[in-house]
């Protein structure tokens, strides 16, 4: 029998199970204690684990992320929560120059098993400083891993895997996914970091997505099916390391590639997905130029209509696929 719980509960369950099992795991962040976190993810945890393991911090992202890095060098397994992913700017040095670099700089003689959880993305009317998708910054930093689950099942399995990982992992949650329900087994399971999943099979076009917009891709695929177009949807699940093999396999089958990403288009991760295809043998399997559905190159505006205008949507995905199928390009035209 399916056990439907929310994405929020799945994240909480993974943390709770890991903390019951391993005394060195702890959660630290702003308002994660009695308040339960700004999005309620850690609600109830302080009652079980106490304030030594569910730790409310002052507003000191650099300080407490640095502290978490220090504990990881000492063999602990910290989970840092950054209340909104936009606030990561406060701890960029700690992530980019410390967490990502210590192992390499020390010649492989150290491990930094830090998990930094943070809600990203727009759609909440919170405007330009509480809505960004800045995950590309961290994909660009060797030494960090970047995970972005789209379902409750993946959220739990990837968080448990991230907590096992001896490397720093930035774990992106999405505010609009927290209430999304899905089947999640109570027992522990792991989804390997770095493995994409084909969430819908199809022959006509490959749609690669991750996070919230993976659901846009699925919705678009269902609608397109009514038009006789069967899209194959790839949920990357992890952005770094990126599973290019799964994307290649799908593109070689369909010959068409559309990437859906919530971050801004310029230098977004979709460009990396496409580049890896066009610089590989899979390029010859393409019979159309790849396309991207991405956030506009603007900050996120407050007004609902403005915000919707610049964000990806199922409709924009449908439109992009239709356009791709309509236009014949290159030697095959």
């Amino acid at each position: 029998m399916p056990r439907d719980i929310t994405y929020r509960e799945a994240v909480r369950e993974a943390m709770t199970q890991a903390m019951r099992e391993d005394d060195s795991v702890f959660l630290m962040g702003e308002d994660v204690g009695v308040y339960g976190g700004a999005f309620g993810v850690s609600r109830g945890m302080i009652e079980e684990f106490g304030e030594e393991r569910v730790v409310d911090t002052p507003l000191s992202e650099a300080g407490f992320v640095g502290l978490c890095i220090g504990t990881s060098l000492m063999g602990m397994r910290p989970i840092a929560e950054i209340q909104f992913s936009d606030f990561i700017t406060h701890c960029m040095d700690q992530l980019v120059n410390q967490a990502a670099k210590l192992r390499y700089m020390f010649g492989g003689e150290a491990e930094v098993p830090l998990v930094l959880r943070t809600p990203g993305g727009a759609g909440t009317g919170a405007a330009a400083q509480h809505s960004q998708s800045l995950e590309d910054w961290f994909i660009h930093v060797p030494g960090l891993k970047v995970v972005m689950p789209s379902t409750p099942y993946d959220a739990k399995g990837l968080l448990l895997a991230s907590l096992d990982d001896p490397n720093p992992v930035i774990f992106y949650e999405h505010k609009l996914l927290y209430n999304k329900k899905g089947d999640v087994p109570e027992e522990q399971y792991r989804i390997p970091v770095g493995e994409a999943r084909i969430s819908r099979e199809g022959e006509d076009v490959t749609v690669v997505a991750a996070g919230l917009v993976h659901h846009h891709a699925l919705e678009a695929a269902d609608a397109l099916s009514g038009e006789g177009v069967e899209a194959e949807v790839v949920d990357l699940r992890t952005l770094s390391p990126m599973d290019h093999e799964t994307v290649r396999g799908s593109v070689e089958k369909t010959g068409k590639l559309v990437v859906v990403e919530e971050d801004v288009k310029t230098a977004g991760w979709g460009a990396e997905v496409i580049s890896r295809i066009v610089e590989s043998e899979s390029f010859y399997a393409l019979d159309r130029a790849p396309a991207r559905v991405a956030g506009a190159d603007t900050p996120i505006p407050y007004n609902k209509n403005l915000e919707a205008f610049i964000r990806p949507s199922p409709e924009k995905v449908i439109e992009a696929v239709r356009k791709l199928l309509d236009v014949k390009v290159g030697v095959y035209s």
Binding site: A62, G63, F64, V65, G66, L67, C68, I69, G70, T71, S72, L73, M74, G75, M76, P78, D93, Q94, N97, Q98, L102, M105, F106, A110
Partner: peptide, 20 residues
């Protein structure tokens, strides 16, 4: 726990060791 090329970069790390 390391020399550090970033001024102030290891201050949080030292707190982490203290925390542990």
């Amino acid at each position: 726990l390391g020399a550090n090329g970033i001024v102030g970069g290891s201050m949080g790390i030292a707190c982490g060791a203290g925390w542990a």
